[in-house]
Deep mutational scan, measured.
Amino acid sequence: VTLFVALYDYEARTEDDLSFHKGSKFQILNSSEGDWWEARSLTTGETGYIPSNYVAPV
């Protein structure tokens, strides 16, 4: 499992996005959609889309 960590805070703009804070960790579920990845937050357990340029591999 590849884990990613948030580099910045992000406020969701749609109900499909995940809001998160810098330092939040994610499991990436689908990275084939270009700049928006489907991810599960390891902090909240919620699933949604995150901007790929806001995260980096742990």
Rank of each mutant, 00 (worst) to 15 (best):
1 V>C: 15
2 T>R: 12
2 T>V: 13
2 T>F: 11
3 L>K: 05
3 L>H: 09
3 L>S: 06
3 L>W: 11
4 F>I: 03
4 F>Q: 03
4 F>L: 04
4 F>P: 00
6 A>H: 01
6 A>R: 00
7 L>D: 01
7 L>C: 08
7 L>W: 03
7 L>Y: 03
8 Y>T: 06
8 Y>F: 11
8 Y>W: 12
8 Y>S: 06
8 Y>P: 00
8 Y>H: 08
8 Y>I: 06
9 D>S: 09
9 D>Y: 04
9 D>K: 04
10 Y>N: 02
10 Y>L: 02
11 E>R: 09
11 E>D: 10
11 E>P: 04
11 E>Y: 09
11 E>H: 10
12 A>I: 02
12 A>D: 02
12 A>E: 03
12 A>F: 02
12 A>K: 08
13 R>P: 07
13 R>C: 13
13 R>D: 08
14 T>H: 14
14 T>Q: 10
14 T>M: 12
14 T>C: 15
15 E>D: 12
15 E>A: 13
15 E>R: 11
16 D>C: 15
16 D>K: 15
16 D>A: 14
17 D>P: 02
17 D>V: 15
17 D>C: 15
17 D>K: 15
17 D>A: 15
18 L>M: 13
18 L>F: 10
18 L>C: 04
18 L>S: 01
18 L>W: 05
19 S>Q: 04
19 S>M: 03
19 S>Y: 03
19 S>L: 01
20 F>H: 00
20 F>R: 01
20 F>A: 01
21 H>A: 13
21 H>V: 14
21 H>M: 13
21 H>K: 15
21 H>T: 15
21 H>F: 13
22 K>D: 01
22 K>N: 04
22 K>H: 06
22 K>A: 12
22 K>G: 03
23 G>Q: 02
23 G>S: 03
23 G>M: 03
23 G>K: 02
23 G>W: 05
23 G>I: 02
24 S>K: 04
24 S>G: 06
25 K>R: 12
25 K>P: 05
25 K>M: 15
26 F>P: 00
26 F>S: 00
26 F>L: 08
26 F>Y: 02
27 Q>T: 10
27 Q>C: 12
27 Q>K: 08
27 Q>I: 15
28 I>G: 00
28 I>Y: 02
29 L>D: 04
29 L>F: 07
29 L>M: 08
29 L>V: 08
29 L>A: 05
29 L>G: 03
29 L>T: 07
30 N>V: 08
30 N>K: 09
31 S>W: 13
31 S>I: 12
31 S>G: 09
31 S>F: 15
32 S>N: 11
32 S>I: 10
32 S>Q: 12
32 S>C: 13
33 E>S: 13
33 E>M: 14
33 E>I: 11
33 E>W: 10
33 E>D: 15
33 E>L: 14
34 G>C: 12
34 G>D: 13
34 G>L: 11
34 G>N: 12
34 G>W: 10
34 G>K: 13
35 D>H: 10
35 D>Y: 15
36 W>T: 06
36 W>G: 02
36 W>E: 03
37 W>N: 01
37 W>H: 03
37 W>L: 08
37 W>F: 07
37 W>K: 02
38 E>Q: 13
38 E>D: 05
38 E>P: 05
38 E>K: 13
38 E>T: 11
39 A>L: 02
39 A>V: 14
40 R>I: 13
40 R>G: 01
41 S>C: 14
41 S>W: 04
41 S>G: 03
41 S>M: 11
41 S>T: 05
41 S>L: 14
42 L>G: 02
42 L>M: 11
42 L>H: 05
42 L>P: 04
42 L>V: 11
43 T>F: 09
43 T>Q: 11
43 T>A: 13
43 T>L: 12
44 T>P: 01
44 T>I: 02
44 T>W: 03
44 T>N: 07
44 T>S: 09
45 G>V: 01
46 E>A: 10
46 E>L: 11
46 E>Y: 07
46 E>F: 08
46 E>K: 12
46 E>H: 09
46 E>M: 10
47 T>I: 14
47 T>K: 09
48 G>N: 01
48 G>P: 00
48 G>F: 04
48 G>W: 03
48 G>M: 04
48 G>R: 02
48 G>K: 01
48 G>C: 04
49 Y>T: 07
49 Y>N: 07
49 Y>K: 13
49 Y>S: 06
49 Y>V: 07
49 Y>W: 15
49 Y>L: 14
50 I>T: 00
51 P>K: 06
51 P>I: 03
53 N>M: 11
53 N>V: 09
53 N>W: 15
54 Y>F: 11
54 Y>T: 05
54 Y>V: 05
54 Y>L: 11
54 Y>C: 09
55 V>L: 12
55 V>W: 02
56 A>R: 11
56 A>M: 11
56 A>E: 10
56 A>W: 09
56 A>S: 09
57 P>N: 05
57 P>R: 08
57 P>T: 05
58 V>R: 03
58 V>F: 12
58 V>M: 12
